[in-house]
Amino acid sequence: MAEHEKITMAQAFNQALRDAMTADESVLMFGEDVGALGGVFRVTDGLNAEFGDARCFDTPLAESGIMGLAVGLAMNGMRPVVEMQFDAFAYPAFEQIVSHVAKMRNRTRGALTMPITIRVPYAGGIGGVEHHCDSSEAYYAHTPGLTVVAPATVADAYTLMRGAIASPDPVVVLEPKKLYWSKDEVDLDEAQPGIGRAVVRREGTDATLIAYGTSVPIALEAADAAAAEGRSLQVVDVRSIVPFDDETVCAAVRSTGRAVVVAEAAGFASVSSEIVARVTERCFHHLAAPVRRVTGFDIPYPPPKLEHLHLPSVDRVLDAVDDLQWDDV
């Protein structure tokens, strides 16, 4: 690996967009401030200069319009990639996503398809003010017809973005803002598992931590801390929320018999609830304790000076692990 340069997750997304646009002329990148500026997070840096205004362009400032434009472009042979500048600014596009992006293939029995990539910088931990830190994955995951991915590593940022753009179906790519500047030495040409596959990030034998996106580094850190105390925690990175990889996740949980799901979204009626339900339904006889969750509180995302109280922390994860009825064994 030493021969590879360290790049950030934002650069990996950028490279994925550049490579996809080079490979296929029908790939278009558009949204707010994605042209000359290169996006507020610089994920589209240099694309306008390299591919021109026809391929990477700024639109009027209107998210429903951006999403609806993508629907029309897809109807007429393009592969649009749109940027929703921030998670909570994507809500005006929600009707277009739910009523058209997600349903068009089904409505027309496959005559019209929607190969659209919806890039959503998501979640908190960046000191963002109100409406800049939502974890909106449950809304998308609850919508049949959408694929939803949440990369947690630099390599996955590249792989899952390429997979999203290549997909014949609409894909919501949740880009963890907090991890945009995380760095890793990666070989982008090295094949990673595709959309629909979870991966075991760390082997362990005592309990399984299940996480995605921003929560994966927390889970890994918790596993490190637990190892120092003599407890071996396995970490599963979900990567693909829809389709969900029941097989990998459940095999992992069966191997340890205990599980904690970590996600920063509010816990009520959430993706973490769904994971607990699926694991419980499928692994009940392998479980030594109820599956626990460490999630955000059921509150609107807090202001920057209070967000540390809301977000899952290593200590909370370790406390949840401690709670997995070890004494009953």
Partner: peptide, 14 residues
């Protein structure tokens, strides 16, 4: 009115 913006997308692709 949701289809009106799709119409713009189809036209722009053309």
């Amino acid at each position: 009115a949701t289809q009106l913006i799709h119409a713009v997308g189809v036209a722009h692709a053309a």
